[in-house]
């Protein structure tokens, strides 16, 4: 069992990290990397290799709400860094990969880990961890203890990304 949910590179040195990590092993899956993560105030989730298989909420994601969250500059604000097939919005960013067709390239479970905590997968990624409250520094007071998106909002954005075939 390896527990590697919040990996920091040299550039992101580990500071006092309040994340509660509870490792899980499942019989017969010794080779898979499993980690249970629970940041203060957030739903716990399990990272399974490159995925978070279980949805964060019982209510399924809503693609329409997800698209609005994806665009909203105070919520997902995804177009700041990504280009996406949303021609009605001007000026898409190109810091991150183009998301056209991402719903064909990745499963919901893979997208979930990338949204929740992309740095758990790729420590050098610049992508903010959208569902995380621990291990951050100098956070603006209004946002301390709050994730960028709530659990249901994460599921909604995943549902929207799944429509990008």
């Amino acid at each position: 069992m390896t527990v590697t949910p919040h990996t920091f590179g040299l550039r992101r040195p580990m500071i006092a990290c309040a994340t509660a990590l509870v490792g899980l092993t499942l019989a017969g899956t010794a080779s898979a990397e499993m980690a249970r993560v629970q940041d203060p105030g957030l739903q716990p989730y399990t990272i399974n290799g490159a995925e978070i298989s279980e949805p964060l909420t019982a209510e399924p994601g809503d693609a329409k709400r997800g698209k609005a969250l994806f665009i909203n500059r105070k919520m997902g604000n995804c177009l700041t860094c990504h280009t996406a097939p949303i021609p009605e919005e001007d000026f898409h960013g190109n810091v991150g990969p183009d998301l056209a067709g991402v719903g064909s390239r990745m499963t919901a479970a893979e997208l979930r880990l990338r949204l929740v905590d992309a740095k758990a997968l790729l420590p050098e990624s610049l992508m903010p961890s959208f569902y995380r409250t621990a291990g951050l520094r100098q956070v603006k007071k209004d946002f301390v203890g709050k994730p960028i998106l709530k659990a249901q909002e994460i599921e909604d954005v995943i549902a929207y990304l799944q429509t990008l075939k």
């Binding site: 550039r11 992101r12 040195p13 740095k119 610049l126 903010p128 961890s129 951050l136 520094r137 100098q138 956070v139 603006k140 946002f143 709050k146 960028i148």
Partner: peptide, 12 residues
């Protein structure tokens, strides 16, 4: 080179 803020970004 040190990331900060809720968006966890460094100047660099």
């Amino acid at each position: 080179f040190t990331s900060r803020g809720q968006l966890d970004l460094a100047c660099a």
